[in-house]
Design a protein around this nucleic acid. Structure first.
Lengths: 216, 216
DNA sequence: CGACGGCGTTCGTCAAGGCGAACAGTGGAC
DNA sequence: GTCCACTGTTCGCCTTGACGAACGCCGTCG
């Protein structure tokens, strides 16, 4: 790995040349585009999923058709698996690849009005901000929401993997998970996992928002 | 993998498996096929995302800190990238890693698309209106838009099948195809095909809208 | 007790992934 | 026209991932 640069053993992948760029990491909920190889996370996830399935390392290796030594090293955080290896493991564990690579990310991510990577336009009086890109295969339904203050609308957790997005149009509202609620002002954007309890509470009369629900 | 031993799967020597490319199959079931080699898909996704970002192969390779030869081979469908390589590419392209590895998931989930426009809420002071349901497999990117009146923003046709949605938050705007333009007021929603010339023209200062781009 | 079968780890070996250099095409500047 | 900067591709070389075998470690059976 990392032929030219950095340490040989280098966990840290070195090739973060692009690191410099780091444009606000648009991405919204993305996996945080952290620059280092997710070796440790892979290792942890691998072991986690394996124990969850109550399988032995040997058994998983056998099912995946890879050497157990390889799997052992992987779970130890050593090594840098190839795509085929990863794929085989995911099939063996019957999990989507993303489960290994996209660690649970229960954070609420806000893009304030005026924040976010603005996409340059040839016409200066037009601005577009990418709030979140869409993972392929995902389903996204778009709602318009009108809410009045007073009660607080609690939602029970939806199916795992559901993510919700809210862009406040007018008024004010408290939005987010019950543990991490944010006050939104017009133009603000927030996204949060919806497979945990979450809330939408209008703070002003005539509060309106655009609501996007994303089912994986 | 697909070494000598193995049980069942993966006879092909792996690498050229994908030659077929473009298996329409995938989609719904995700990786259910347990078939090998998301190679072709990686290759396609890689090139797709790269062109989407309007970057050259050389540039992406440079940002990722990998040899352009490697990237070239990857986009050609040859090779079996390591995790570090994949990760570096994802960082360089500023996309979540799952975007490359696609297939969503296994769970059979019911699609209740297009059911009922207005969704009743248990709390009367909360209203949600379903503007549009999402066709499975579609990709939707969500933008926030700020526009000032004056010029008219014309857009050239995008790729076939692209559909755009606009929900106006504040102000007024003319939106739609060049042949059928509509004036939007706050709360209004419009959708139109974007594979023909279309337009977004703010009519009031500080016009804001939520913009959803849908690639099939 | 020793033998067996399970586990996960470590050790050489070999092929394959990744690298850099050299390669062919393209478009613009002069 | 040549030169230059750039694209993406194809070639040897070499590091490194993946392999199988051997290892040490428990339980359990004979």
């Amino acid at each position: 790995m990392t032929r030219g640069d950095s340490t040989g053993a280098g966990q840290h992948s070195g090739r973060d040349t692009g690191r410099g760029t780091e444009k606000g990491a648009g991405q919204g909920t993305g996996q945080g585009a952290s620059g280092e190889a997710p070796l440790a996370e892979i290792a942890a996830a691998l072991r986690r999923e394996r124990t969850r399935a109550e399988l032995s390392l040997t058994e998983v290796a056998r099912r995946a058709g890879i050497a157990k030594s390889t799997l052992s090293q992987l779970e130890a955080g050593t090594g840098n698996p190839s795509l085929e290896t990863l794929w085989a493991l995911c099939v063996a564990l019957d999990i989507p690849i993303g489960r290994l690579l996209a660690p649970a990310r229960p954070s609420v991510h806000v893009v304030r009005a005026g924040e976010g990577a603005a996409i340059a336009s040839s016409q200066a009086d037009y601005q577009a901000t990418l709030l979140t890109a869409c993972p392929p295969g995902a389903r996204r339904d778009v709602f318009r929401i009108t809410a009045e203050p007073g009660h607080q609308r609690d939602s029970d957790p939806h199916m795992p993997g559901v993510v919700e997005h809210v862009i406040l149009s007018t008024g004010r509202a408290l939005v987010g998970t019950t543990e991490a609620t944010v006050e939104l002002h017009p133009g603000d954007y927030v996204t949060y996992p919806a497979d945990v309890p979450h809330v939408f509470q209008a703070l002003e009369p005539g509060t309106q928002a655009v609501f996007v629900s994303e089912h994986t």
